[in-house]
Simulated scan of single mutants.
Amino acid sequence: MAPNLKDEDFLQADEEIQEPLKPKAVKREYTILYHMVLVLAYLHIAALYGVYLLFTSAKWATVVFNILTFIAGSYGISAGVHRLWSHRAYKAKMPLQILLMLMHTISGQTTVINWARDHRVHHKYCDTDADPYSSVRGLFFSHIGWLMVKRHPECLEKGKEINISDLLQNPVLRFQKKYYSILSPLMVFILPTLIPMYFWNESISNAYHVHLVIVMLGANATFCLNSIAHAFGNKPYDENISATKIVPLSLMSSGEGYHNFHHAFPFDYRSSEFGNDYINFSTHFIDFFARIGWAYDLKITTPEMITNRVKRTGDGTHRSIRSRS
């Protein structure tokens, strides 16, 4: 059973979150990390070749295997590093933590500790120079460009100051961080290539390149939440922040398309007012493990809290406002 949070409980629960500062639209100079440009360019080009192989020569078993891999990685990001570890929106017993850590590792999106630290900085200093993927710096920067340049000094400074003691004390996350140089290539590239080759005689080129399609699709789904979901869409809960509501993104990100709600209420485990929405896959995932006792202390915001926020700061597009007009 998910406990409701009162206004004062919500404010106390999220020690890392504050109202975003007014962004500064100023001209900035960038130090390009050319090795990252080359790596990202290669991965995208190789993934495009994988798309060609996907439709021309890959076996059906390879396609199904990679769809399952994509789903696993998506849950590792959304239900794991995002809702569980970045925002502590619920608690998980050790078996679920291990499962989510492995599913996150499949995605290839750095360690949980690094990912969650950046995300907490993003929420606390959204759209300032401290924000790793500030939307003020343009759609390309917030999508993928932030990985291609050196970080702003303020981002580095605030990243060191952010409280991640809960992550550093977690034995599952410490294990992942310690052995990530082994786990990442093994689970992102080696095993997904060898499994199709060994079990159904897929070619090495098909197995490798088709899996890169999944890796880059998952990465860009996450990137879209930093870019598109801060540039286009409605703001039914808070029109004063850049995060928006773009429901179709939920199909790519396991239910993270209600981004305006998430930034307004970051500690709601559903990342949406509509927790039972059929495309909010991660909420259903968490609910399943709550039923078997592996997930607990699921936090949700009260309807009254949502209504008050909609009336106070919403842009007028919330369904409760439209239904009265």
Rank of each mutant, 00 (worst) to 15 (best):
I106D: 00
L96F: 10
T105L: 01
H82V: 11
T105P: 01
I77K: 11
W85Y: 14
K91I: 13
K91A: 13
S107L: 05
L84C: 07
G76H: 00
H104N: 00
I98T: 07
K93D: 03
L99P: 08
Y90I: 15
L84V: 09
S78Y: 12
R88V: 08
S78W: 12
G80C: 14
L96S: 08
A92E: 04
G76T: 02
Q97A: 09
Q97T: 13
T105N: 00
K93S: 10
I106T: 06
S78C: 14
M94C: 15
I77H: 03
V81H: 07
S74E: 07
A72C: 14
K93C: 02
M103C: 15
L100T: 05
V81T: 14
K91F: 09
I98P: 08
L99M: 15
L84Y: 04
S74T: 13
W85L: 08
V81L: 14
L99N: 04
L102M: 12
A89G: 13
G108T: 05
M94A: 15
P95N: 03
M101Y: 11
A79C: 10
T105V: 08
I106Q: 03
Q109S: 10
H104I: 03
L96T: 13
I77P: 02
A92V: 06
K91T: 13
L84N: 05
I98Y: 06
R88H: 11
L96G: 07
Q97I: 05
H104E: 01
A92N: 09
S86I: 10
G73K: 06
S86F: 01
S78N: 08
H87P: 07
I98G: 06
S107G: 02
H82W: 00
Y90P: 09
A79S: 08
L100Q: 00
M101P: 02
T105Q: 03
L100F: 01
Y90E: 03
P95V: 14
I106Y: 04
A89S: 15
H104M: 02
H82L: 13
R83A: 04
M103D: 00
A79P: 07
I106W: 01
V81F: 06
Q109C: 09
